[in-house]
Design a protein around this nucleic acid. Sequence first.
DNA 1: ACGTCTGTTCAAGAAAATTTGAAGAAACTG
DNA 2: CAGTTTCTTCAAATTTTCTTGAACAGACGT
Lengths: 163, 163
Amino acid sequence: MGRLMEFWGFRRHMGRLWTILYLSPEPMTTADLSETLQLSSSAVSLSLGELVRWGAVRKTWRPGERKDFYQAESSVWKLLRRVYERRELNLIREAIDAFGDAQRHLDEARGQLAGADRRRVDYMRKRLSRLSALSKAGERLVGLLVAGRVINPADLQSAEEED
Amino acid sequence: MGRLMEFWGFRRHMGRLWTILYLSPEPMTTADLSETLQLSSSAVSLSLGELVRWGAVRKTWRPGERKDFYQAESSVWKLLRRVYERRELNLIREAIDAFGDAQRHLDEARGQLAGADRRRVDYMRKRLSRLSALSKAGERLVGLLVAGRVINPADLQSAEEED
DNA sequence: ACGTCTGTTCAAGAAAATTTGAAGAAACTG
DNA sequence: CAGTTTCTTCAAATTTTCTTGAACAGACGT
């Protein structure tokens, strides 16, 4: 899970911590965790805090105990969904905006150009509009994923067919 | 595109190079590229080589010209598919193997344990089998994506329902 | 076959990230 | 309210990753 998580752009330790908690029948303390994984308490605090912010781990308490206890959110599907929603979707939207900005810039520039330059700009505009179409299709698809609806990858394919 | 690519686990420059080529009506040389993006020739060579290995950029030649020319593979869908096929699918399979190994280890250990230890191991076995089921469902889904077939995220959801 | 022009590889240096110990907050106990 | 205990934050130090210039290798033309 550490490797998977790292590949996904998270800290490796987030995956390791989550897994230990996921495999534990009872909630654990930060001391347990840093002992099990041989991590300093600050490393545990950092990664565990991030896991909590992502909703992958929940803080719980025990009467009488002063320490915090942690347990894993056990629905991986929920977690996946949340990551796609908060992170991938954002990323795609930033890309959509960036392509939009670029298109606007080109449109402005086009008027003042002629000849080869103009042809070049026209080519770029065509390409950019394809990237726009693609990223919008991607946004829709990820939206469907987050909603747990059926996804058809062919939508992406057709988003970039010549017009 | 640089940001997107970086997020995806590739070098940022790969995204930038690909984009320049994608937006160019004609193939470009490494000199053009390093000039446009202000990169050293070795940086261009490195990232461009990787792009070629991923099939995201193709080498072409011009009669009489000594330099190599490069042009972008313009089907983003094809590229996406290739990445999922070569990389994500592998990653998932490694995870499946790792979970399988872990399960086997637990099964071996179980015989020699009793009491609380045994209960703990039994709990871990249940959890691990859920992770296995999940990763296998993931493998199937990514397989469908690569094949361009319709995907139902609910399959993931049901893979982790209590049995 | 030699010299020149391209492209790649390598190792050193630079930049970025992770990790850690220590200091600082916060929350609880007596 | 003082004294603990626990958790978080911070800056320094380490590790890792990126970048670069130089050396190397390959291909082409003369």
